[in-house]
Design a protein around this nucleic acid. Structure first.
Length: 216
DNA sequence: TCCCAGGCAGGGC
DNA sequence: GCCCTGCATGGG
């Protein structure tokens, strides 16, 4: 059972997920900030924080780069790790102001490899966050590998803890199509939340049950 | 009460 | 390179 078949099963079971939801008028920047805020938390908390920032007209590189840090703390507190995340989004905003005239699209229009490496050099942006920005904000054919993806593929027999290896396996099998990439990542998260927490919950799993029962 | 969430960085080895 | 820990709030 490889990536395209898993994708079809999940799409049939859960339907389209329509990631990445955007609430304001600067989609690319909002998605990038969202990828930082959503680290190790739920989307519901991120939505609260983003809504607050939009209502206070704070969600622009210039505003965030000069805002009172205490104000940012209050806005994003629900997402957890708020002191680290504040520093990360301020640093990212400063970077855009200084190097890209506050226009994230100038950064996102760079070649894939160059852009990815540049994102990885920024504080608080690791592989999954960088790849989420590449896929959802820059519309590049790059697949983000998250903890659920490791867990699900491991239970299906693809046992690796190498991000690059699993990403390569998925990208080699998946149709080269943006919507497929975006939906498959979102669907894996949906499957994981529903059936694949650290303790196996395999009953009624849309994937092959005998495979999923080999959970560890 | 305990576990978990759409990770990352830094240290030890 | 891999493994561990701190970071923090909120919901089930």
């Amino acid at each position: 059972m490889d990536a395209p078949k898993i994708y079809q099963s999940l799409l049939k079971r859960f339907g389209k997920q329509n990631w990445w939801p955007v609430l304001g008028s600067n989609p690319e920047f909002e998605i990038a900030i969202g990828t930082i805020l959503t680290q190790q938390t739920t989307w519901q908390q991120v939505e609260k924080a983003i809504t607050d920032m939009i209502n206070d007209k704070l969600l622009t590189p210039r505003k965030l780069s000069t805002a009172n840090i205490a104000e940012i703390h209050e806005m994003i507190r629900p997402t957890g790790f708020y002191r680290q995340k504040s520093n990360r989004i301020i640093n990212f905003s400063n970077y855009l102001v200084k190097n890209y005239d506050s226009d994230i699209r100038k950064l996102l229009s760079k070649p894939d490899n160059e852009l990815r490496q540049e994102l990885l050099n920024l504080e608080g942006i690791g592989k999954e966050t960088a790849d989420s920005i590449l896929l959802y904000a820059a519309n590049k054919l790059i697949f983000p590998v998250d903890a659920y993806t490791f867990r699900i593929f491991s239970r299906l027999g693809v046992k690796t803890n190498s991000y690059d290896e699993l990403q390569g396996i998925i990208q080699n099998k998946l149709p080269k199509d943006l919507e497929t990439y975006k939906e498959f990542h979102a669907l894996l998260v949906m499957l994981g939340k529903t059936y694949c927490k650290s303790k196996p919950q395999c009953s009624d799993c849309p994937l092959n049950v005998s495979h999923m029962r080999t959970c560890s």
